[in-house]
Simulated scan of single mutants.
Amino acid sequence: MTIFKTRSFWSAALLTLICSILGTLLGGLPYLKIIGALVISLILGMLMQIHQPTIKIAKAGIGFISNKFLRLGIILLGFKLNLIDLAHAGIKTILLAAIIVTCTITIGYNIARKLGVEPQLAILAASGTGICGAAAVMGISPQIQVPAGQEEKKREDEVLAVAIVAILGTVFTLIEIGIKPLLHMTPTQFGVMTGGSLHEIAHAVAAGGSGGPVSLDTAIITKLSRVLMLAPAALIIGIWYQKKVNKGQSSGHQKLPTPWFMLGFIIASVIGTFVPLGATVLAWLVKLAYLVLGMAMAALGMSVNFNVILHRGRNALLAASCASVILLTFMIIVSKTLF
């Protein structure tokens, strides 16, 4: 009997769908937009743990949804990425995005390791900080291969990394809005800074929007340029992690991870850009992407160990904070110098 025919799957699907829909609704409220629907869905999933008998029934389905649905959600998220708009932004913006992602992940990971954070958590938190927040954590995570029996610990790392980028993204959004009058930037410069330094798309929209329509459009384009780096980053990190971090932990040849769902992400972006689907259809596909990702986030929240997360999160949060400060400083200099 397949997972789709089991009571566990349908129980998990219903619970996570409720959390995702509520997360979407709550994420649209004025004071909760800055947090974002995905993080709210994760929190709602955590709260579901209060009723353990229900979670126990849905346990197998929760694992399936947190694994498979996140890949589907990432693929659908590709429809949000308009390649023509990115091309119009110019090679300078794309090159800047590549530098931001490469340097932030490298710096964030190395600071975390110096502070004693385990490699798996260190790379997930660094990726979320450098690329696009929760979606990046969920996109990079399938590339992190762990031995049998460590899946629960991996889910804890995913939740912790998402929580870190959500907290820091919110804090730095407020900081950037607060220091805006002190920076004396043009709307374009402020948009480049917010889009290049903040963690989630929602954060870039919130901060960039405070500078007016030109600032908002620039922030979104700059942020989406970083989102474009998700596919190559997933491939490179998967190969690197397998070769370097897992070196010596097991014998024999291990198959390198191939992020096929990232190919789907790229294909979706190509279809969304060049196939005349219409703005309404594209908007609904993006909404579906966030609904599916919200289900995956809720499933993740239903399976975490709170005590472990609180115990292991401090140094990872400190490392990501340091990387975020460095990134913001870099973006202030670059924005005022080159844009």
Rank of each mutant, 00 (worst) to 15 (best):
I94W: 09
I94G: 08
L96P: 01
A97E: 02
I99A: 15
I100C: 15
I100L: 12
I100K: 05
V101H: 06
T102L: 14
C103T: 15
T104A: 15
I105Y: 01
T106V: 03
I107C: 01
I107R: 01
I111L: 09
I111K: 06
L115E: 01
L115K: 08
G116P: 11
E118K: 13
P119H: 10
Q120G: 15
L121I: 03
A122Y: 11
A122I: 05
L124A: 06
A126R: 09
I131G: 01
G133L: 00
A136M: 00
A136S: 12
S141L: 13
Q145D: 13
P147Q: 07
E151I: 02
E152Y: 09
K153D: 09
K154P: 03
K154H: 09
K154G: 07
R155W: 05
D157I: 03
D157P: 06
E158N: 12
L160N: 09
L160V: 13
A161V: 03
A163E: 02
V165L: 11
A166L: 02
A166K: 07
L168Q: 12
L168P: 07
G169I: 05
T170N: 11
T170P: 05
T170L: 12
V171R: 04
I175R: 07
I175P: 05
E176A: 09
E176M: 12
E176Q: 15
E176K: 09
I177H: 08
G178R: 04
I179C: 09
